[in-house]
Simulated assay, not measured.
Amino acid sequence: MTDDEIDRLAQDFLACTLPKARWTHEAHFATALWLMLRRPDVQPEQDMPDMIRRYNESVGGVNSDTAGYHETITQASLHMARCLLASLPRDVTPACAHSALMASPLGDKDWLFGYWSQDRLMSAAARREWVAPDRMALPA
């Protein structure tokens, strides 16, 4: 993805005009990185949950114990994105950061299962609130 593509993707997400089919694993991380790098007025760990809930509803989705927004996945993904950014130059662009992230283990949409068992991660509790990993701690 280019910087322009990420910029458009993130802006469409925020405006709730992004087609649901484009809200992929890759798009989630692209948007998170863009917010971290381009929107100092946004605190992703605090603001992204409501952004995602609003977006889900705008495309006809629901945020429930079985679908939609997932707190543990969101917070773990934001934590890992920040870890990756800390390893990159301060002036990294969203496209370069996204490329590095997607080339890392985080590029695999199942990366979370290295840290959480499926039952724990897919539980209603983990969807509603942060649930710590049960397989391996996230890196500091």
Rank of each mutant, 00 (worst) to 15 (best):
A124W: 00
F13V: 10
S64P: 01
A10K: 00
V59M: 07
H79L: 07
H79R: 08
R120F: 10
E71F: 01
L14F: 01
L121F: 14
R135L: 01
V42R: 10
H79N: 05
H28G: 00
M102W: 08
L37Q: 02
R120H: 09
A67V: 02
R8D: 15
R120C: 13
Q46R: 10
R38E: 06
R38D: 03
R120Y: 12
M51E: 15
D4V: 03
E26M: 06
A27E: 04
R54G: 15
V42T: 11
P40R: 05
V62S: 15
R127F: 06
W34V: 00
G114Q: 11
V42I: 15
T74G: 03
P89W: 12
A32V: 01
K109E: 13
A76C: 02
A140I: 14
L14N: 09
C16T: 05
Y55M: 12
S99H: 14
D65C: 08
L88Q: 05
T2Q: 06
T74A: 10
D65T: 07
W23S: 06
P133M: 05
H28Q: 04
E129K: 07
M51P: 08
P49T: 00
R38K: 04
A76K: 01
E57K: 09
W34H: 03
P133F: 14
A27N: 11
L84N: 07
E26L: 07
D3S: 01
W23R: 02
D41N: 11
T93E: 03
N63Y: 06
W111N: 05
D47W: 06
M36C: 03
Q11E: 14
I73T: 14
W34D: 03
L33H: 10
M36D: 01
P133W: 10
D50I: 13
P105H: 07
M51V: 08
L106E: 02
F13W: 04
S64W: 10
L78I: 08
R82Y: 13
T17M: 11
C96P: 05
L14D: 02
P133A: 06
P105C: 13
R128Y: 05
D4I: 02
C96N: 04
